[in-house]
Design a protein around this nucleic acid. Sequence first.
DNA 1: CTCGCTATTGCAAGTTGTCGCAGGAACGCC
DNA 2: GGCGTTCCTGCGACAACTTGCAATAGCGAG
Lengths: 152, 152
Amino acid sequence: MSAPVAPARALPWDTARGALRARGLRWTPQRRLILEVLAGTTGHITGAELVERCRAHDAATIPSTVYRTLDVLEDLGYVRHSHGADGREEYHVLPGAEHAHLRCLGCGSVVEIGRDEALALVGGLGSSRGFTVVLSHVMIGGYCPGCGPEVS
Amino acid sequence: MSAPVAPARALPWDTARGALRARGLRWTPQRRLILEVLAGTTGHITGAELVERCRAHDAATIPSTVYRTLDVLEDLGYVRHSHGADGREEYHVLPGAEHAHLRCLGCGSVVEIGRDEALALVGGLGSSRGFTVVLSHVMIGGYCPGCGPEVS
DNA sequence: CTCGCTATTGCAAGTTGTCGCAGGAACGCC
DNA sequence: GGCGTTCCTGCGACAACTTGCAATAGCGAG
Ligand SMILES: [Mn+2]
Ligand SMILES: [Mn+2]
Ligand SMILES: [Zn+2]
Ligand SMILES: [Zn+2]
C-alpha cells in the first residue's frame, strides 16, 4: 500500500492534504487532481495550461475551481505566481531554486538567473533604499542576444 | 486660431500626425481623440481607463480601436506599457523619465527608480549576457521599509 | 475633384481570469 | 452511520484584452 522506497527527494505534494486540513480546508477530488498534475510539472505553468492538463484527466474541470485552488496553494506555499510578458499568470511549481527572471520582449524566452547573480544586481537596494528584494518577484524585461536591441 | 503662447515645454503630441503619415499610417478622428486624451494625461493610465475617458468625449469609442492605437503609439514612441501587479496593462505617457519599478509585495506601493540608478543595477546584463534591458519592463518585487521583510 | 489602394474601423467571437451565489460535499462529532 | 457546520464547486455574468473579417474611409496620384 505505502510506497516502499522514498523517491530521490521527498515530494512536498504528499503533505498537501495534511496542510489543507490543518487550516480547516478540505481535500476534494478536484484539488487532488490539480495537485497530481502539478506534481508532474517542473518549472512554469500558466493557469490556462493547468486547466488544459486537468481537462485531459477530467473533462469536467472548471477554470474557476482551478484558479481558486491555485490561490489556496500559493497561500500554502506550494506554488508561486508571477506575470508573463503579456501579463498572463505564470505559476512556479515549488520547490525550486530561488531565482529571478530575464524575459525577452521579442521572442518571449525566459532565462532564470541564480540567486548570487541576481543579488549582485539588485541586492544593493537593501542598503540604498531599505527595500528587501524578493528574488522570485524580480522580472527584468529586454531583448535577448538573438533578438537584439529593437531596430526602432 | 493658433495658440499665441507656447506652453512651458513643447508637447510632442503635435508631431503625431506627421509621425503617422511618415510611416504610411493614417490620421483618423479616433486616433485624434485618443491622442487628445493622452495629451491631457500625466503619468500612468490603463487601457481600460483610456477607453473610459475617450467615451466621455465620444460614447461610440470602441475598445479594440483604442488598444490597437496604443500599439501604434508605442511603436512610434509616444507611450510605453508595462504590467501592473495584477498583470493588467499600464501605459506610461511620454515624455517621461525612463524608469524601472519597485513594487512592495506587502502594501502594493510602487516606487519608480530613475534611469541612472536602474541602469547601475541591471545595465550590466548588456555586457555579461548580451541582454538589452528595457527599463519599463524591469519590475523588482520585495518589501518596502514600512512593510519590512515578511515575518513568514 | 475623382479614383483606387490599403490602412483602419466596427463588430463579433475568443481568451484568460475574477466574482457572487446557491446547492452540494467534506469533515468533525456524536 | 447520521448530522450539522462550513467550505467548495459549478455556473453565469463580467472585466480586460485580442484577433479575424468585411466594409469604410484616409490619402496620394492623376
Ligand atoms: Mn522561473
Ligand atoms: Mn511608472
Ligand atoms: Zn529574444
Ligand atoms: Zn510596503
